[in-house]
Computed example of a mutant assay.
Amino acid sequence: MIIIGEKINGAIPSIKQAIEDHNEELIRERVAAQAAAGADYIDCAPSTAPEIEYDTMVWLIDLIQDVTDLPISIDSPNPLLLKRIIEEGRLKRPGMVNSVNAGCMTVAVEAGLDSAIMDPCSSFMMGTLYAAEALSQRDKGGRKYNRAFRKGIFK
């Protein structure tokens, strides 16, 4: 079982306040507690206004990496922000992208995504995944795409 600690999330009122106040101590405490409790990854979800989300995510990533060597799951509905974080090498260790957005997944596949937290029963999401892998040439000749289409995994 892979455990992703989800407590560094701006949707949680105390974390939202800590983000607004730049309360490093609270963020560090929550990261340390999750690491000590056995998390395999630490989720980083600023859940802020779009105009400050990048700076907030970078700040949180730096704090998380100061506390633990666990990989980070970066979480945002903005695929370009996630791609930028990955391309800039902000993560010390390979982590994961946590988003349910098809556009995000497409950009993440291009950036090297090799696993996804998604609904495999969604023909739209599965079709998007197969198409992204084919277009990014990770599916040589589109064989997996064609096979999945013929099986009716997506339409």
Rank of each mutant, 00 (worst) to 15 (best):
S115N: 13
V97Q: 03
A45L: 05
E51N: 11
F154I: 02
G152F: 04
R28V: 06
S14A: 12
E53N: 04
R90Y: 10
S14T: 06
D21V: 08
E53V: 03
Y41T: 01
I117V: 04
S14I: 05
K16W: 11
D75I: 01
I117W: 01
I15Q: 06
P79S: 03
G152M: 03
K7W: 10
I153L: 06
C104H: 08
L63T: 02
L129H: 10
I19G: 09
L129V: 01
M105R: 00
E133T: 07
M1A: 10
L129P: 11
D43I: 06
E29K: 08
S47C: 13
I15D: 10
A108S: 06
D69R: 12
D21E: 15
A102G: 02
S99D: 00
I2F: 15
E6W: 08
Q137K: 15
K92M: 11
Q17W: 07
P46E: 10
N98L: 13
F124D: 03
T68G: 00
L135N: 08
E88G: 04
D69L: 11
F154M: 04
K7V: 04
D139A: 02
C121T: 15
Q34W: 05
A32W: 15
D62T: 09
I3T: 02
L81P: 00
V97F: 01
L91Y: 06
N9G: 06
N78Y: 10
E133M: 13
A108P: 00
R84F: 08
I86E: 14
Q34I: 00
I153S: 02
S76F: 03
T68E: 02
E51G: 04
G10F: 09
I19A: 10
I3A: 03
I3R: 13
A11I: 02
A18F: 01
D75C: 04
I8Q: 07
F149V: 05
R147C: 11
W59S: 03
S76G: 00
E87F: 04
D139K: 13
R84Y: 07
T106L: 12
I2M: 12
P13R: 02
S122L: 05
K16F: 09
K140P: 09
R138W: 11
G95T: 02
T56S: 07
L82K: 06
L135I: 07
T48L: 08
P13V: 05
N146D: 14
D139R: 14
D66S: 12
D62K: 14
K151R: 12
L82I: 02
V107W: 06
A45W: 00
C44N: 07
Q137G: 05
M126N: 05
S47G: 12
T128G: 10
D66H: 13
I2V: 09
D139N: 07
M126Q: 06
E24H: 11
E51S: 10
A108D: 02
G5C: 05
T128E: 12
M126E: 04
I8C: 08
D21R: 15
S115W: 15
E133G: 12
G38N: 02
I3G: 01
V67F: 11
L80A: 05
E24F: 08
T56I: 04
R143G: 14
I52T: 11
T56P: 00
T56F: 09
